[in-house]
């Protein structure tokens, strides 16, 4: 995996965020492991602590293993006004997890995020790369069910 990704990027520090994005996307558990940090540090000739710093700075990166599907519910004011708190309560109940946790079956990780820029359809969440808007309790239930069914 690393070889194929490194083939696309010259060993310059400016490519760090790209490389991390790709490694994380390709990892079945969507995270950057300690091993990955070491290998990337070597390739880019930068310190592991620099990478650790970058990883923990940006919300899209995780240093902990995550589920197959990552739910990111927007908690910014426009979604809040439209009831994102109720959606969050429902998601926590449905999935039986707290924010940042992964379900026991490894299918979902529940995260919060800042504005996704789809506020015309608030409340909004993103699952992996797909955006779901105008959320209602019924809609959330069917979306979750469709992923559980193996989408």
């Amino acid at each position: 995996m690393y070889k194929q990704i490194f083939g696309k990027y010259t060993p310059k520090k400016e490519n760090l965020i790209y490389i991390l994005h790709e490694i994380q996307d390709q990892h079945p558990e969507h995270y950057i492991s300690a091993e990955a940090i070491k290998i990337v540090a070597e390739y880019l000739s930068i310190s592991e602590s620099h990478i650790q710093g970058v990883l923990t700075f940006y919300t899209m990166f995780s240093t902990k293993p995550r589920g197959r599907n990552i739910i990111r519910l927007c908690e910014s004011p426009p979604c809040f006004l439209k009831g994102s708190e109720d959606i969050l309560r429902q998601l926590r109940q449905l999935l039986e997890v707290k924010i940042g946790e992964t379900t026991a079956d490894g299918i979902f990780t529940l995260e919060l995020c800042a504005c996704l820029g789809v506020c015309g359809n608030a409340p909004v969440m993103m699952i992996n790369e797909d955006v779901y808007g105008d959320l209602t309790e019924a809609k959330v239930e069917s979306i979750i069910a469709s992923y559980r069914g193996g989408k």
Partner: peptide, 20 residues
């Protein structure tokens, strides 16, 4: 990669260079 502060122009440049 998800950081509001990167809308600040110098923070954005830092991020472009592969830093926090």
């Amino acid at each position: 990669a998800g950081a509001y502060v990167c809308g600040e122009e110098t923070a954005l440049i830092e991020s472009m260079e592969g830093n926090r």
